[in-house]
Design a protein around this nucleic acid. Structure first.
Lengths: 226, 226
DNA sequence: CATCATTTTGTTGGATCCAAAAGTAGCGTA
DNA sequence: TACGCTACTTTTGGATCCAACAAAATGATG
């Protein structure tokens, strides 16, 4: 089950490569994306790069202005908040749907995924991001609605991942909150309490969005000063 | 605020043209889309057609298999149901958000939009589709969350519009239900009752999705027989 | 007569080429 | 010295060309 159903190998690989470099912060926010440069770096022609850029553009990760080129999109804080309100709603739905469908094994998987996020646990760099992702992805899988999973995935791809990681890793308090919120969600799922599960998940996502929005606020402030 | 932020004029226009022809049923479901043919028809080169097709592909309206070309996607009934469950959630959120934001003028606009859908009113062909759309679009505008509006728009673009129109126009009963459901939504909005507004809108979308899914079920059945 | 291999045709995918547009720098004039 | 105009450079957008791949048709063989 691919996100882009199926198409050419090259342009999808190219898009994935560019997206990865943006997500990882290798290409910073606001940076210009020159087609020729990308083509040379990735060892392909300009054609697949162009189509990859278009694909990323429809995803909202980059912006393309007619004859000036593509830049990595700099999201405004209100945009982050709006997006996370939508995402909260959808994640809440996924969580609610997961309640009647979850098994003991599923609960175990979730607990294990969250255990990797326990504050104070030793972990290699960047692993918290994937662990965090996998927690949500597990729930999407249990929810059993492919379209829902896909829409959430698309929404997530609108913002560079490394920023979320930064937000999480910078502040130990955030790590603790994140872990505790996940635990509450697991508890509600285990208790077969759909209402609570949804509410907890919504609150969790909203809070994550708020932290992210604040990060962008601080960032734009410093940028304006500098 | 365009759906595709901004980019080349030609490829967006091309994508819009192709999408319009699919949505209107001019290009039927399951039809093959030959790039050269489209290019000739639209009076452009194959390049913008290719990129337009890729754009439509990420939207999910068409499917592209590596060396065999693009076809208009034939949605499975379960896919329709899944999609409409997601859409119901989001439209419900929009409706809830609209409650504290709606004005008397906004209510009037909604009433007027629904009046165009009154069963028994005389209307030219196809106008019911746009009237139906405008009812929802109005609410999205009032809800005041651009990302939400955009996500719903993208979801809607996953299925040809003419099918929804068919579903609506075929059965007078559906027209009546549709009208009544809209009225209930307006009533809840006017009563400042967020809970009910959300619930009514959700039920409305779910019901529309069910009708659409049934239509596709009947269609696939006849196709298999034929 | 059926089945498999081979050839042929049609269509897409990728690369290169050419044109158009915008930004920039340099020069000239007020 | 400052402002404006022009020419140049850079980069994207569109068209055309060539190769790869898949399907269909045709012929040969069991």
């Amino acid at each position: 089950m691919d996100d882009a159903p199926q198409s050419d190998a090259l342009v999808d690989a190219t898009a994935a490569a560019i997206r990865a470099r943006i997500m990882s912060g290798d290409i910073p926010i606001g940076a210009q994306l020159r087609q020729a440069e990308l083509a040379k770096t990735l060892g392909v022609s300009r054609t697949p790069v162009r189509e990859a850029l278009r694909q990323l553009q429809t995803g909202g990760l980059i912006e393309v202005v007619p004859h000036r080129g593509a830049v990595v999109r700099v999201p405004a804080p209100w945009d982050v908040r709006e997006t996370y309100e939508v995402r909260a709603e959808l994640e809440g739905l996924a969580c609610e749907r997961a309640v009647p469908r979850i098994t003991r094994d599923g609960l175990d998987d979730l607990r294990k995924a969250n255990e990797a996020l326990r504050p104070g646990a030793i972990r290699p760099d960047g692993s918290s991001t994937v662990a965090n992702d996998s927690f949500h992805t597990l729930i999407h899988g249990i929810a059993g609605n492919e379209r829902l999973a896909r829409v959430i995935k698309e929404i997530n791809e609108a913002f560079p991942r490394n920023v979320s990681a930064l937000v999480l890793q910078d502040n130990p308090r955030h790590r603790e909150d994140n872990f505790a919120e996940h635990e509450r969600i697991i508890t509600a799922l285990a208790a077969d309490d759909a209402e609570t599960a949804r509410r907890e998940m919504q609150a969790h996502v909203i809070s994550a969005g708020e932290q992210l929005a604040r990060w962008y606020e601080r960032r734009s402030a410093t940028v304006f000063r500098g």
